[in-house]
Computed example of a mutant assay.
Amino acid sequence: MSNKSGNFKGEINVGEMKGDRMNELEKRIESLEKQLADMQKATSCDLNILSTRITAVESFSR
């Protein structure tokens, strides 16, 4: 079940889903998992860059 903007709301009874609807759900889940992994990777990279900058500033300040 989704609202007008396509955002999920409610529950899904997977036992009642068949064929194309199940395939669509699986593809959507895979897409969301990839988006999450990409966001986590980008955040991790940003945190590493910030950590390096903080270390450099701390070293310079001493």
Rank of each mutant, 00 (worst) to 15 (best):
N48R: 12
I54V: 13
L25F: 12
S51M: 05
E30L: 03
E16A: 15
L32G: 01
S31M: 07
R28L: 09
N13R: 13
F8E: 03
T43M: 14
I49W: 06
L47E: 09
S2G: 03
N23E: 11
G15W: 07
D20C: 11
A56D: 09
S61T: 04
M39G: 12
D20T: 12
L47Y: 03
G19R: 15
K27G: 13
F60W: 02
R21P: 10
T55P: 00
S44C: 09
K41Y: 11
V57R: 03
N23T: 08
T52G: 09
I12P: 06
L47R: 10
N7G: 01
K4Y: 02
D20F: 12
N7F: 03
A56S: 10
M1Y: 00
K27C: 08
M1I: 07
K18Q: 15
A42K: 14
L50W: 06
M17V: 10
S59N: 09
R28S: 14
K41H: 15
S2F: 04
E24S: 07
E16P: 06
E11R: 04
G6F: 02
S44H: 11
K18W: 15
S2M: 06
S5M: 10
M17F: 01
T52E: 13
D20L: 14
I49M: 09
S31R: 06
N13G: 11
E11P: 01
V57Q: 01
F8R: 00
S61I: 00
V57K: 01
N3V: 05
L50R: 09
I49S: 04
E26D: 08
S5W: 08
A56Q: 10
G15K: 07
I29Q: 05
I29W: 05
N48V: 06
G6E: 01
S61R: 05
E24I: 05
